[in-house]
């Protein structure tokens, strides 16, 4: 078995980029060279009152600069503490963990679909697979929550941003907007990250199109490496009974058709 390591990352940037949303850049002396878009980093906070690590998707990475980027929303006490850390502070980080998005050999045309903070999973996918063609759809609740537009514009052949209330970009749910474009796009695969409610809508909206949908799941985690069995999600695989799999090891990237929503 490959060896795993806990690494020390030095904060190079920790900046507010939208309402309650931060971008953090961490630099590692021993930067791993095998990161795949969709994998995650398990970050330890520097105080013992927060005993659990926080799993964040690796938003993007740069092997030569030895950096990863995290994009996170302040939703609770832990992320509030994280947002207070200053440049130069060191964090213990386990990475890269879990499975990333791995396009099949015949895939050329990819739809990247992000819902809210789920968009943070997307930038690393083109970094891992620069040879593919990307058509990106980002959906947010409103203008204040829009993130990563610039980053995705650089790597996408086409970028559509939508807000639920129409305060920025197109108005409406981004899944519906994608569904309208599907017939002319004809992508080989859809890579998506967003809330569970979005996955339900997506499953329905793309039912008429014969396209594989691969999603990244979020879960409350303990160990992050498959030992504690707390981050489970229910799956139903062809010919098998419903069962739980570990989001941290068998995921976080999974086929939407197998996830029991």
């Amino acid at each position: 078995m490959a060896s795993l390591k806990d690494r020390i990352g030095v904060i190079k940037l920790n900046q507010k980029v939208a309402k309650d949303i931060y971008k953090m850049v961490l630099q590692f002396d021993d930067m791993p060279d095998d990161i795949k878009g969709g994998q995650f980093a398990h970050v330890k906070l520097n105080d013992k009152s927060h005993i659990l690590r926080r799993p964040f998707c690796i938003c993007d990475y740069d092997i030569s600069a030895k950096t990863i980027t995290l994009c996170y929303a302040v939703v609770g006490d832990g992320t509030k503490v994280l947002s207070s850390y200053e440049v130069g502070e060191k964090l213990q980080v386990m990475l890269p963990l879990g499975n990333g998005f791995t396009p099949d050999k015949n895939v050329k045309k990819v739809v990247l679909l992000g819902g809210g903070m789920g968009s943070a999973v997307l930038p690393a996918i083109p970094t891992s697979n620069p040879e593919l063609e990307y058509y990106t759809y980002l959906g947010f609740a409103n203008k204040e929550k829009v993130v990563l537009e610039e980053e995705m514009a650089k790597v996408s052949k086409q970028l559509t941003v939508a807000t639920d209330d129409g305060s920025y970009g197109k108005k409406g749910f981004v899944t519906n907007i994608l569904a309208e474009d599907m017939a002319k796009l004809k992508p080989d695969v859809v890579f998506c990250c967003g809330p569970e409610v979005m996955y339900k809508a997506l499953k329905k909206a793309l039912e008429p199109f014969d396209v594989p949908i691969i999603v990244s799941l979020e879960a409350r985690m303990g160990c992050g490496i498959g030992a504690c069995l707390v981050c489970n999600c229910k799956v139903k695989r062809a010919g098998e009974e419903e069962t739980y799999v570990r989001v941290c090891v068998e995921g976080p990237v999974m086929k939407l058709s197998e996830v029991v929503l």
């Binding site: 005993i51 659990l52 879960a219 409350r220 504690c228 707390v230 981050c231 489970n232 999600c233 229910k234």
Partner: peptide, 9 residues
């Protein structure tokens, strides 16, 4: 086992 969430800080 139980359905998730199974952990809270």
């Amino acid at each position: 086992g139980n359905p998730p969430p199974r952990i809270a800080e």
